[in-house]
Amino acid sequence: MTKQIRSPLPGTFYRKPAPDQPNFVEDNAGVKAGEVIGLVEVMKSFHEVKAEEDGNNVRFLADNEAPIMAGAVLAEMD
């Protein structure tokens, strides 16, 4: 079954903690519930986005530094 990870906030999505660091989660990796999968920058403050459940084969639909709306699907996983 396909699961979705949505952004709780509107803003700019980041897949890594800083420009010179690796992604929180690589494409096709697995995640545990509560694991940070990215950051959303809203009005210059940064908020973590966490996976709400375990999943495998994560596929990101939002690019690094993409503008997103609240509720946007950031990634799908199995």
Partner: peptide, 10 residues
């Protein structure tokens, strides 16, 4: 009625 964008300062 203005929708404040989230991309800039507050």
């Amino acid at each position: 009625g203005y929708a404040i964008p989230p991309f800039y300062d507050s």
